[in-house]
């Protein structure tokens, strides 16, 4: 089975208040190395039987049309062969 894994995060020039809040929490716990934190989204899509090329074309369309908003978000994805855990 093919599995698409899609990672979405806010663009660099969009303020990320969740990221700032998490960064502050990390610092208050004593972690000093986190210069900037981005909080994003992660989608796992189990795909019907199709070729990898077809899957990549379709996943890109899914991202552009619904899963992400190009005004504020960037995404990357992988399509992998996977028999079990997502």
């Amino acid at each position: 089975m093919l599995i698409a894994k899609i990672y979405v995060k806010l663009k660099r020039d969009v303020s990320d208040p969740q990221g700032f809040a998490v960064k502050g929490a990390l610092e208050s716990l004593g972690f000093k190395g986190a210069d900037r934190v981005h909080v994003g989204k992660y989608f796992v899509i189990e795909l019907a039987d199709m070729s990898r090329d077809a899957a990549e074309v379709m996943v890109r369309q899914m991202c552009d049309k619904l899963l992400t908003n190009p005004v504020i978000e960037d995404y990357t994805f992988t399509v992998e062969q996977n028999g079990g855990e997502a």
Partner: peptide, 17 residues
């Protein structure tokens, strides 16, 4: 309207969360 592209821009999480 913003999501539909009928108006430009986007509405994101309040600064204060």
């Amino acid at each position: 309207l913003c999501e539909a592209g009928i108006l430009p821009g986007a509405l994101i999480r309040n600064q204060s969360l």
